[in-house]
Amino acid sequence: MKEFLQGAWLKHPLHPALVHIPVSVWPAALVFDLLAYTGNGGNTAVRVAFYAILMGLVVALAAVPTGIADWWDIKQDRLAWTLGVFHMVLNLTASAVWALNLGLRAGAALNLSRPPLIPLLLSIIGTLLVLISGYLGGRMVFNYGISVGRNSKQKWREIAQAGHANLPPAK
């Protein structure tokens, strides 16, 4: 189960692939909100923002279990583990903010030509949260190497072996 969520079957970690969607379409929703709010795009922009939030939310829900599976494997004494906790709390908060935001937009609000103030504010807060959290997630990969080399151990072991390197014992 954990291996499935970590993307072993795809030979690619699942969590970083899924998060492309919420990380991009939620800030995009804010852009469309701001366009509509300043009188550009009218109801079309209001609707695009709604679709973007909806799409982001659906994928974000799928990203939660995959993220927990990746975090599960990090040793607790590593800084990346703590970073992972912050990342998780921020993401869950962001998802809740966007869910509330979506709820406020459904129904009659969908026919407006500019977003009401509260949903607009929620978009700003939600965007900040997801961007900060995304940055932390990126740091986990690019600074701490989380999920790096997990599916390619064998490939690189062979390359290192061909280069006469000392190797760790094979498992």
């Binding site: 998060v19 492309h20 969607i21 919420p22 990380v23 991009s24 379409v25 800030p27 995009a28 695009v48 679709y51 973007a52 799409m55 982001g56 995304g134 940055y135 990126g138 740091r139 690019f142 600074n143």
Partner: peptide, 22 residues
């Protein structure tokens, strides 16, 4: 402290995918 290309590509991926869904 972070590569920019992998950060920016979220946006074309998400927006193009949303385009196709729409």
């Amino acid at each position: 402290g972070y590569p920019l290309h992998p950060a920016v590509i979220h946006f074309p991926i998400g927006l193009f995918f949303l385009t196709v869904l729409l």
